[in-house]
């Protein structure tokens, strides 16, 4: 009985995690919208990359929108994520956008020259 209950709890938790994932990566028309985490660093980069690339392959995504609404910290690992995704979609004529970035992250993106490959809205 206890085992059953525990399995139930674990399944429920996995459900919620799946739900969280789909909320973070949404496809609208041919735009893949990626909700960036609160802190974008090397530790978080691999996960973001993996999920984004899976969706790029699966769903014929053309353009990518990075949503920085929740992001309060980003280091140069974030630039690597953006450059990497840009390389994947630009050869098919796709565009990359950054939206809802706070003042500091907007400044980071512009001063590091990222605005030559992405549009900051």
């Amino acid at each position: 009985m206890l085992v059953l209950f525990l399995t139930f709890l674990i399944l429920r938790r996995e459900d919620r995690q799946m739900e969280a994932k789909t909320r973070e990566y949404a496809i609208i028309d041919n735009y893949l919208c990626i909700k960036m985490p609160a802190e974008v660093d090397h530790h978080k980069a691999a996960g973001i990359r993996e999920c984004a690339d899976k969706m790029i392959l699966d769903d014929k995504v053309k353009n990518i929108v990075f949503d920085f609404e929740d992001t309060t910290f980003m280091d140069s690992s974030g630039l690597g994520i953006i450059i990497g995704r840009y390389r994947k979609i630009s050869c098919f004529g796709g565009k990359v956008y950054a939206v809802n970035a706070n003042e500091r992250i907007t400044r980071l993106l512009t001063t590091s020259g990222m605005t030559s490959i992405i549009e900051v809205l």
């Binding site: 990359r49 630039l79 690597g80 590091s112």
Partner: peptide
Amino acid sequence: ENERSGMGFSFMEA
């Protein structure tokens, strides 16, 4: 291959 941007030291200096 690890998708580094090469901007780490530039950020530190900035």
